[in-house]
Design a binder for these strands. Structure first.
Lengths: 277, 277
DNA sequence: TCACGAAGTGAACATCGTTCACGACTCACC
DNA sequence: GGTGAGTCGTGAACGATGTTCACTTCGTGA
């Protein structure tokens, strides 16, 4: 653990009090994360976390405003963890920030920056499922029943984590789009859809309306497969997991996005259209 | 409600005791369902249900073994409700069984048996989202965090409801398949996938391996969009809901399944293949 | 050294799921 | 019609939970 902490190389600006507070906070989050991993998000109990830490339940309130507050902290860190996992699969550079101490198992496929964009998209898609099936309770924490009545503040760490996951998923697709290799579909030209999508693009200016819509649909598509599997709705069909089915879906998605076609050299403004309907 | 019950036309086999017990059971489930609709599945409290019924908390245990048991009952009925909704959208005949007293709003599009299979598939797909967004907490009950450690018994009412939902979703696709109008994809030919899928077909004998896999993928694909929307992960993008995006996905799905192509007259054994990869 | 504020404790409160002994009532049977 | 058995519902109770509060302990800056 952090047992071998830098005893004297610690910056002098941080006194003993701040250090132990920081360490206690880390220990608290780790204990809560262990609880979630073992008993699920709904089973998270502050008293149990306190017991695990050898602390009085009331003492936790020096670090956490409420049980719900602790849950949202875990949610934000879960997004960061998942986002990091996706970045590694995409062949991320050294940049690693806000990643928990205990790193998750590496994704099954790790691409590199020079890898073909189809392979990178596949790697990210497989990493999404991989993280989910190896962290089922955290996946449920992030994507299961929302905390009733909770709305993530727009500037807060929760949406920051969601954005990291989103960009981690979208990164290969953005590059493919910019290389003119994404095939769009006539259904994306619906004016109502474009009208609903366009205000969003103030945030996501790297993509066109169609491309952003396609990304959302691709994410949702993969998310559905993963969600049904992780939440057990396919267990009676596939007791050993749904990886082959998921792989087939990913291949279909890649081919429908046109990522297997020859690059046309078109810019993002002129993606090659769908085959004649 | 059932106030105007058939007072004397009730079969004599049911005495007063059985009748009030049945009525109390209905009232209990309705009160619990109201609780779930208002406060979500995790907020369901037996004491609150008892208060709503003007009853002592302990009295509920004459009707329900535990809180978890009540939840699984609600889950089973929720599946039945959703399945009924899908059947109505598909233009179901008079057969209606196990539908709760208060019927849900009708699906936005109701097809008929003579409607084209693409239109019926679209109607069912739209009905899936429609039920979900108009019953968000019940959707969370069915498809959100599973009750930790609970596994639905294979013969029980839960899987019966799941099967009704599955067949309700699959019905148009089964017909399209049998009419030879479903276009498959080379990725579905993966031998490992076929091996994992084939034991399932002992239950679902109407479909081939590829067709059943395609159905599962289509379901998951739609489910993902709905799930992300209902659980609020798209609210910051689309505060007014994701219907246009979802409609685009449905149209893409229909065209990728080949349901817009001219019928070839091939039997289910010989679906027309995918366009050259 | 000393006063301030942070960290942690134990007791308490309201709520929850659940159990249990007990009274009231229903129903089948003589 | 009476009667015994079984059902229905109640109130009290137990252990657990989230949360608050007064109080002590102790690090830290002046």
């Amino acid at each position: 653990m952090g047992e071998t902490a830098t005893d004297q190389s610690t910056p002098v600006t941080e006194g003993r009090r701040q250090r132990v507070r920081r360490e206690t906070m880390v220990e608290l989050k780790q204990a809560a994360l262990d609880e979630v991993r073992e008993r699920g998000a709904v089973g998270l109990s502050l008293r149990s976390v306190a017991r695990r830490m050898g602390m009085s339940p009331a003492g936790l309130y020096r670090y956490v405003a409420s049980r719900e507050d602790l849950l949202t902290t875990l949610i934000a860190e879960g997004y960061q963890d998942l986002g990091h996992h996706l970045e590694v699969a995409n062949g991320a550079p050294a940049h690693v920030g806000g990643v928990p101490d205990r790193p998750p198992p590496s994704p099954p496929v790790i691409a590199g920056p020079e890898t073909d964009v189809a392979d990178r998209t596949r790697a990210v898609a497989l990493a999404y499922r991989h993280w989910a099936v190896s962290h089922p309770n955290e996946f449920g924490l992030l994507f299961g029943d929302p905390i009733p009545g909770y709305e993530a503040p727009t500037g807060g760490p929760t949406v920051a984590g969601m954005r990291r996951v989103g960009t981690g998923l979208a990164q290969p697709l953005v590059e493919a789009w910019q290389a003119g290799r994404v095939r769009t579909h006539p259904a994306m030209a619906d004016p109502e859809l474009r009208a609903g999508l366009s205000p969003v693009l103030e945030f996501e200016s790297e993509l066109s309306v169609e491309a952003f819509g396609l990304f959302l649909l691709a994410w949702g598509r993969l998310h559905g497969q993963v969600s049904l599997e992780v939440f057990g709705h396919h267990r009676w069909l596939f007791p050993d997991g749904c990886e082959p089915l998921y792989r087939a879906d990913v291949e279909m998605l890649l081919s429908e996005l046109g990522l297997f076609d020859e690059p046309t050299g078109d810019g993002p403004g002129e993606p090659h259209g769908h085959d004649p309907a």
